[in-house]
């Protein structure tokens, strides 16, 4: 598949960094033509082990889904505010049970032929990176056939 650099995938979550990344892309591309942007929210199902029962767990997942959908709408609004045409901005929420969010983002990028991937990065200490891993670092290391913009 051909990867078009004007086809931009912004991976977002509920953080401020994601908002910053979206805002940055809005500033950069709003005057240009031919850009198509997809906002992608990968929702990893919170582990069932963290909850005493099925219903509290499902409640939590539903709550996260709702909040992710709202967040995507808000971020789309932000891009439109910056001057992008609403028809050029789409959003996707995908739910995974696998461990790796980075892998899900890269799979989506590959499948959709996105030539640019944008991700926000929060300041993380070395210890945090060791213990919990970093989505943005993983994407920088393993992404293929695309440019990666990491917004800090």
């Amino acid at each position: 598949m051909k990867h078009e650099f004007k086809k931009i995938l912004i991976a977002v979550d509920a953080s401020e960094n994601a908002k910053r990344a979206v805002s940055y892309v809005g500033e950069i591309v709003s005057d240009g033509r031919g850009f198509r942007i997809t906002l992608l929210y990968v929702l990893r199902r919170v582990e069932r082990d963290l909850f005493p029962d099925e219903s509290t767990w499902m409640e939590k997942i539903e709550k996260e889904k709702k909040s992710a959908t709202k967040m995507l709408e808000r971020l789309k609004g932000l891009l439109v505010e910056k001057g992008l045409d609403a028809k050029d901005v789409t959003h996707e929420l995908i739910e995974i049970s696998d461990f790796s969010i980075a892998q899900a983002i890269m799979d989506f990028q590959e499948k959709g032929g996105y030539g640019t991937v944008v991700i926000g990065r929060r300041g993380m200490s070395k210890a945090e990176e060791f213990l919990f891993g970093s989505i943005s670092n993983k994407i920088v290391h393993y992404a293929k056939n695309c440019a990666v913009w990491v917004i800090e």
Binding site: L50, F99, I101, L131, F132, G133, I135
Partner: peptide, 8 residues
């Protein structure tokens, strides 16, 4: 809970 690497 972890961000990306569950084994860290």
């Amino acid at each position: 809970e972890f961000e990306e690497n569950p084994f860290g």
